[in-house]
């Protein structure tokens, strides 16, 4: 097949790079949610230990 013109090729190249970026962003967002949950649990534990010390 002959090389695609720049306009059509550009759309395919952009799509490939956007797919990759989306995968990385979704992955980081999932890890971020997990870290948020950890932070909440840590706050809960901190409150429990503080109550016990009183």
């Amino acid at each position: 097949m002959p090389a695609l013109p720049l306009e059509s090729a550009g759309a395919y190249v952009a799509a490939a790079y956007i797919v990759f970026l989306a995968l990385v962003v979704i992955y980081v967002a999932i890890i971020g949610r997990k870290v948020g949950r950890l932070e909440r649990e840590l706050t809960e534990l901190d409150d429990v230990t503080r109550d016990r010390e009183r």
Binding site: A3, L4, L6, A9, G10, Y12, V13, A16, Y17, F20
Partner: peptide, 18 residues
């Protein structure tokens, strides 16, 4: 730019390392 594939070959630098 690749002589055969042109601009579309830029996907190579993402696809193959991945």
């Amino acid at each position: 730019l690749d002589a055969d594939q042109g601009f579309i070959q830029k996907i190579f630098y993402l696809h193959v390392p991945m």
